[in-house]
Every structure is written in structure tokens, then in C-alpha cells.
């Protein structure tokens, strides 16, 4: 590990060479939009919202999985990136059934926030209106796949932090969807510990506590960073 100097949006900064562009940017209050990324979980690189320009590289690179290097020149904003980010958010709205007004996470949703921060006031892509069935078989939690964005935070937290690996993804492409155990109802899962970590890391209202009405579900995922720190100290 060593310290390197780089520039992000013309601002001269320093960071460690084992840090990602995203980490260094955030440490200096430079905002890069993300959705699948969450501190305390492994990186995924699937949402593509954090794509940035790096000088000398003709491809866009995901800030969450790209480490900084000496002399790196990063640009996190451009008309092109803004257009791509808007389309990514629009794609998410178009592929699911996101009815913000009646959602438990209305007002506390990362997808809703992202749409607003990217200046989206309507979805120009046609909605696909998939038929997805809600799983309310668990005693304490509900999974509503209509609101799922397949960020896989639940899969990762369950596997990496809780160690249960109850969640996983089945199917391919547009048919990819979350399952519990070997595609059994969540309530019948033999691996689920009912810890609720998946619910807390879910960026939308796809996973929520039973009994919560529209706009009442507030997620708390700060525990992850704390757990990560404590585990590192112990090891």
C-alpha cells in the first residue's frame, strides 16, 4: 500500500492505491451515484451508475471496483454520463412495477432518490409490467419482487455477513429473480436465521418488515460498516 496523488474533476487529491475511485471521491465529498454498492459488502459492479471517465482509457470504468493510481485523472460528471445514468434509472423503473405512492419505502428509497437526483421526471422507455408474485410467507418480513432492482445486496449480506446464503439469483437476463433457498417460500427456508439484514440493506421497498404501511419503512444499514470494523479488529 502506498499513497498516490490523482485528480477528480480537476481537484487534486491523494488516496491509497488500494482504495477505489469511489472511496477516494467520497472521502473528499465528491458524489458519485451508486445503487448496488454498499460499504461493508463486497463490490458487485452491476448497476453501472458509478461509471466515470479516466484519462487515457477509452472505456468508461466503474468507480466502485477501479483502484486509484498515481497521476490518475478522473472525471465523474459529463453530459454523456448524465445521459447514461438517467437511462439506467429509467431502465430500472421500466423493468419492475415501481408504484412509489403506495410503497412502504416511499420517501426513503434509494431508487426514488436516484431518479430525483438525476433529474428524471418521467420514464421515456415503455414499461414492461412483469407479473411478479409477492412472498409474504415469512413471519416477520415480506419480499415484493415488483420493487426489486437486483442489486444483490441481500444476497451478499446474507452470504458474506450473516453466513446463511439464503438468498440467491435464479434465471437469466430479464427473467433473473431472487430466490430463497432452492426456490422455496421464504417462510419455509431452513437456512434463514430471520436476522433481517437483507431487509435493512435493500435499497427499495422490495424487502420490508411486516406491519409497515406506505412510507413507513426506514432502512438502517450503518451496522454493516460497524460489523466490518469489529471483525477486522478481531481477526
Amino acid at each position: 500500500m502506498r499513497v498516490v496523488t490523482l485528480s477528480i474533476n480537476g481537484q487534486h487529491l491523494s488516496g491509497r492505491n488500494d482504495e477505489s475511485v469511489l472511496q477516494v471521491a467520497r472521502a473528499h465529498n465528491i458524489d458519485i451515484p451508486t445503487l448496488c454498492q454498499l460499504d461493508g459488502l463486497s463490490t458487485w459492479g452491476g448497476c453501472r451508475l458509478c461509471l466515470v471517465h479516466v484519462e487515457g482509457n477509452n472505456k468508461l470504468v466503474p468507480a466502485c471496483v477501479t483502484n486509484v493510481f498515481e497521476g490518475m485523472v478522473v472525471q465523474t460528471e459529463s453530459e454523456r454520463l448524465a445521459r447514461y445514468r438517467r437511462m439506467i434509472i429509467e431502465m430500472l423503473f421500466s423493468e419492475g412495477n415501481h408504484i412509489c405512492s403506495v410503497c412502504v419505502s416511499n420517501g426513503n428509497c434509494e431508487l426514488q432518490d436516484a431518479a430525483q437526483s438525476q433529474g428524471i421526471d418521467h420514464i421515456s422507455l415503455p414499461y414492461l409490467y412483469p407479473e411478479r408474485t409477492v412472498d409474504a410467507s415469512h413471519d416477520r418480513f415480506t419480499f415484493d419482487p415488483n420493487r426489486c432492482v437486483l442489486c444483490t445486496r441481500c444476497v451478499r449480506v446474507c452470504d458474506e455477513v450473516e453466513g446463511a446464503h439464503t438468498w440467491d439469483v435464479a434465471g437469466r437476463g430479464i427473467k433473473a429473480h431472487l430466490i430463497t433457498d432452492l426456490n422455496q417460500p421464504w417462510g419455509e427456508s431452513s437456512s434463514c436465521t430471520s436476522c433481517g439484514k437483507c431487509v435493512q440493506v435493500c435499497p427499495t421497498g422490495a424487502l420490508f418488515e411486516k406491519g409497515k404501511g406506505a412510507g413507513e419503512m426506514v432502512k438502517k444499514n450503518e451496522f454493516l460498516v460497524y460489523l466490518e470494523e469489529m471483525r477486522q479488529k478481531r481477526s
Partner: peptide
């Protein structure tokens, strides 16, 4: 387009699947 129903089809669209 005033409001979510006009903009996104909102609650009326819940029948669409």
C-alpha cells in the same frame, strides 16, 4: 402531466401485469 397517475400510470397501472 399532473401527478404520478398521468406521469407514470401509478396505481391504475397495478392491474397491468
Amino acid at each position: 402531466s399532473l401527478g404520478d397517475c398521468a406521469v407514470t400510470a401509478n396505481v391504475p397501472s397495478m392491474r397491468n401485469p
